[in-house]
């Protein structure tokens, strides 16, 4: 029985292993802090030889492709990539992805400088959302983290309030009716 459990645990560990395998290379950034839209010098070594890697800027909420680099016969490369202008400030990781998608190397990068205001809608967002953001975004240009709620206007017309009242009354009425003792 114990052996079966151990085998199952081993299987789980093996299934999860790809996420941490492959990571034998090294990359070095020209700077540990940068602004969105800046150029970033990147140098790598101890990687698979003559291989093309994808470079991705990765944060918990968003990831951005930065481009591709190809190593030489020694497994090294040197390149300059441009950081996305739309990225928000915060802690990111620059990761090097092998052709099979595994992470081959990584380095931390902090995006710190000014960028579009916090709350700026993404490209392609509905125009109404953009207008909403413009009207209610904080009056500072640089992004800042805050626990404060957004002051979003809720435009509930008479029709919507009527629906809410109707649903509420229907639930309360039907509930009370069901709970009324049955007639003998």
């Amino acid at each position: 029985m114990t052996r079966r459990w151990l085998a199952a645990l081993l299987l789980v560990a093996l299934a999860a292993a790809p996420a941490i395998a492959h990571e034998h290379g090294r990359i070095y950034l020209g700077a540990s802090q940068a602004a969105p839209g800046d150029s970033l010098a990147l140098r790598g070594e101890k990687l698979s030889k003559a291989t093309t890697f994808r470079v991705v800027l990765r944060g918990p909420l968003a990831s951005y492709p930065l481009g591709e680099v190809t190593t030489d016969r020694a497994g090294a490369f040197q390149s300059t990539l441009r950081l996305p202008a739309e990225a928000r400030a915060g802690a990111y990781t620059v990761v090097l992805l092998a052709p099979d998608g595994d992470v081959s190397a990584r380095a931390d990068l902090a995006l710190t400088a000014a960028e579009p205001p916090a709350g700026a809608p993404a490209a392609g967002a509905p125009a109404a959302v953009a207008a909403e953001h413009a009207a209610h975004a904080p009056a500072v240009a640089a992004p800042h983290a805050t626990a404060q709620p957004m002051a979003l206007p809720v435009h509930a017309g008479p029709g919507e309030w009527a629906v809410i009242a109707l649903v509420t009354l229907a639930c309360l009425g039907a509930g009370a009716r069901l709970l009324r003792p049955a007639r003998r």
Binding site: G59, P60, L61, R88, A89, G90, A91, Y92, A110, A118, G119, P138, P143, H144, A145, T146, A147, Q148, P149, M150, L152
Partner: peptide
């Protein structure tokens, strides 16, 4: 609803 997340 809070403002969009600032990472880190």
């Amino acid at each position: 609803l809070g403002y969009p997340a600032v990472e880190g």
